[in-house]
Amino acid sequence: MADTPTTDFLDAEVIARLSRLQVHSRAPMIGTVSGMHRSPHRGSSVEFAEYRKYVPGDDIKNIDWRVFGRTDRFYMKEFEADTNLRCHLILDTSASMGFAGPGAEPKLSYARRMAATLAYILVHQGDAVGLQNFSSHVENELPPQHNAAHLKNLLDLMGTLEPKGETEIVTILHELAEKVRNRALIIVFSDFLTDPEELQECFQHLRYRKHDLVVFHLLDRSELEFKFDRPIRFTDMESNFNIVTDPVTLRDRYLDAMHQHLDRLKQGCVEHNIDYWRVVTDSGFEDVLADFLLARQT
């Protein structure tokens, strides 16, 4: 008998507080139903968009008769179309996401709580949410839907995720850019421990497909500070490669390499108008999400 997946990562109180905020797309979305997000197409919302001349075949119900009365010409009145969005939550579940410093929460666990909360908010505002987790390949994939049953399936899947395998984020994101044809909100949760130049190409690819891309870069405090006082055998969580070294002597160079990586990654995101969020896992995820949602309100 299979274990019942846990949904402990979903905090009802946090959801209650954050549900007053909504997830807005920063780019027009092409959805399947009417929603709260701007669409690139003209539609039937109450918000006036523009006039255009009547051409044969147009539905006469949209002719503005007041304008005809004043000008004796037929003009078609057009309105903005509001639609829902499709959000793809992309979760890195490679082994490195299982890392946690002393007393800290594993990065995957942290990312799962964020993703689950966002999924709940999105579904409850009528948007479709899908989930994809990957390591060296896509391991699970749920296409975006907006019903409550789907949300349950999505959360159940999240509860089963375990960190394992090596990261092939570059390949995975390129494949995603090809696969998702309609404009969507793509939120990636990862520690991005790969070449930032290659990552930038992925991001560029996704932006080329007109997706609204959000990147949550998850880091552990011990990775940022690298404070060790004696020689240590470091074992890579993904490849089991190990190295014995004195962190005291290495610390400067480690921090240099890390900051260089972070700076290049952030710079790439800024250049491609990608919403980049660096998250240290010892900070409260509710605050992180609140900041994220508030920034999206404008």
């Binding site: 082994a95 055998r233 470091f234 890579d236 190990n242 160079r253 890390m258 990586h261």
Partner: peptide, 15 residues
């Protein structure tokens, strides 16, 4: 030596 499972091996190797 104390063994530590480490994720950010990328920076460690560069250093």
């Amino acid at each position: 030596y104390r063994s530590v499972q480490w994720a950010a091996m990328l920076f460690l190797l560069k250093a």
